[in-house]
């Protein structure tokens, strides 16, 4: 086998050392730093973007929190306003109700008093009329004036009999 022929050991080793050392120098000084720089840059960009994304996310979350806080606040505010308004309205309505009912009951009372007055007046009138009518009827039938006192008593009795 040519592999075990020592004639070419020396040139093989010489060129191996030469080429490998060249390769090593080229790798350390040129190729590897270049690739490493590209990879580092990409990693940095990715990290940057990740950072930025995290930052944006935090910002968005903060905005959402602020919005929700504002929403809750305004809701509470609206609630209190509504409650206040409705309280005020209901108290006002009650007030008006009370005033109105007081006024109404007053009017009712006055009306009742007026009705009672009118009734007694009317009843008094009825008695007078009844006495007059009974006197004139007595006069026509008998042709003599009736005794006024007796007439009055009779009318009163009749009125009592007919109720009220």
């Amino acid at each position: 086998m040519p592999q075990f022929d020592p004639t070419f050991f020396a040139p093989q080793l010489f060129w191996l050392v030469l080429t490998f050392v060249t390769l090593y120098i080229l790798m350390t000084s040129v190729a590897l730093p270049k690739i490493g720089a590209v990879l580092d840059e990409r990693q940095r960009k990715i990290d940057d973007n990740l950072d930025k994304a995290a930052q944006l996310k935090a910002e968005a979350e903060a905005a959402v929190a602020a919005y929700e806080k504002a929403l809750a606040e305004s809701r509470a505010h609206a609630h209190s306003v509504i409650k206040e308004a409705s309280d005020r309205l209901s108290s006002e309505a009650e007030e008006r109700n009370r005033a109105l009912s007081a006024k109404l009951s007053e009017q009712i009372k006055a009306g009742e008093a007026r009705i009672g007055e009118a009734k007694t007046k009317a009843l008094a009138n009825v008695r007078d009329v009844a006495i007059d009518v009974a006197g004139s009827v007595f006069d026509r039938l008998i042709g003599a004036n009736a005794d006024a006192a007796k007439l009055e008593t009779a009318v009163a009795t009749a009125l009592k009999e007919h109720g009220k």
């Binding site: 004639t7 070419f8 020396a10 040139p11 093989q12 010489f14 060129w15 191996l16 080429t19 490998f20 060249t22 390769l23 080229l26 790798m27 040129v30 190729a31 590897l32 270049k34 690739i35 590209v38």
Partner: peptide
């Protein structure tokens, strides 16, 4: 004896190709 042989040529070719590949690609 440090004759430039077909083996040496392939080693040189390897080094050239490796370096070209790694530098040109990036």
């Amino acid at each position: 004896d440090i004759s430039f042989t077909n083996s040496s040529a392939m080693m040189v070719l390897s080094v050239c190709l490796i370096t070209l590949f790694l530098t040109l690609s990036v």
